[in-house]
Amino acid sequence: MTNLDWLKRAAKRSTTEPGLLGQVFATYQTLEHCSLEALADELGCDEQTLQMLALCRKPAGEAFAEQVKVICERFGLAPRPLVNMLRQVDIMGGMETHAANDSGRSVARLQLAARDRKRKDEPTP
């Protein structure tokens, strides 16, 4: 194997890069409270393969099935665990974002209400 000293750091950074599997894995870890070892076990690979996977594009859109196939063939993985992970992150991650947005909207509504009340309370000139 060639010298891949950089791989660990590049994979770590991928957790904040939209569109890469690294971000999917990071979200999954947060949702499932699992370690990197557990994540690798679930996908059926070792940690170095997990780091390489993290640098791949996240399968999406119409080419989803084909992209999963390409990734799994390259790393000798069974597609099901990866697909399950992607689906779970899409659903749960999406719900979390919605919840965050909703709470953001609630905060904004509260702030608007407070501002309105303040305006109403202000003495009219």
């Binding site: 791989l7 640098l55 791949c56 390409v70 990734i71 390259r74």
Partner: peptide, 11 residues
């Protein structure tokens, strides 16, 4: 293109 492993290959 939509190649999912190309990003790894660039690295």
């Amino acid at each position: 293109s939509q190649d999912p492993t190309v990003t790894l290959d660039v690295f």
